[in-house]
Amino acid sequence: MSTMRSAGQISLRNLRAIPRLPSAFFPALLMPIFTMIAFSGTFYAVTKIPGFPTDRSINWYMPIGVLFGSSFSGIGIGFTTIRDIETGFYDRLRMSPAPRNALIIGPLFTAWMRTVILNLIVVPIGVALGVRFEGGILAVLSLLAASLGMSTLSLGWGLGLAYRFRDMRAAAIMQLSIFIGLYLTSAQMPLEFIDGWLHHVATYNPITYILYLARQGLVLDGTSHDMSWSNTWPGLLAIVVLSGLALAFARRGLDKLDK
């Protein structure tokens, strides 16, 4: 059986789990909606600070919500993998003649599909609540690229941890690390408005640049955050490097599981 065919079958199984076990997918869907509404409502006034790159708080906070949801789409599959390892189903998968890479590529397809579903639901809700894509269709594509990137690296990280810990301890580490990684960025305020330790951490945190990629079409033209190649390539580079490392971490974990 070819890698892609096996991956397709594994992905299909994971997708079927959504209606069968909605509680595993709903948090990833509700989180961006809640983050978008709660942050833009609570911190509505920050857009009045001179120099803030948008006059709509929901424009500023929707991308971080989407990235949270995309990350949880990825690590949600990590949770499923832990359950499969604990119940012994994963042993049966490993004993099957499916290529090893299919065990990673299959869940990756599922993560991407979940992320697309998430965007298809969250973006229209955001638009209904007042989000305006200043950069047009390119803005939507940027947001989608960033969210697919986040789901890829979260999936690699989640699978790698699941293969190593093989129990629910990994779930807590997955959630905590993704949560902290996303918060230690310009999640709440533009980088130039952040002071002290967080400014330094956010500057060197590559996820900040993925967030720039996600946000660039939602801020006003002429600001340092607007749609430009200089706000695109660092985000794409961060996605490629982090995803590569995370998927390699997953593959090594799978090899260790085999041993």
């Binding site: 911190f43 006034a45 920050v46 600070i49 709440q188 408005f193 002071d195 002290g196």
Partner: peptide, 15 residues
């Protein structure tokens, strides 16, 4: 700690 670094400029907002 996150809020202290992020929102230091917000303290000058009206209200």
């Amino acid at each position: 700690a996150l809020g202290a670094s992020s929102f230091s400029r917000a303290t000058s907002l009206p209200g």
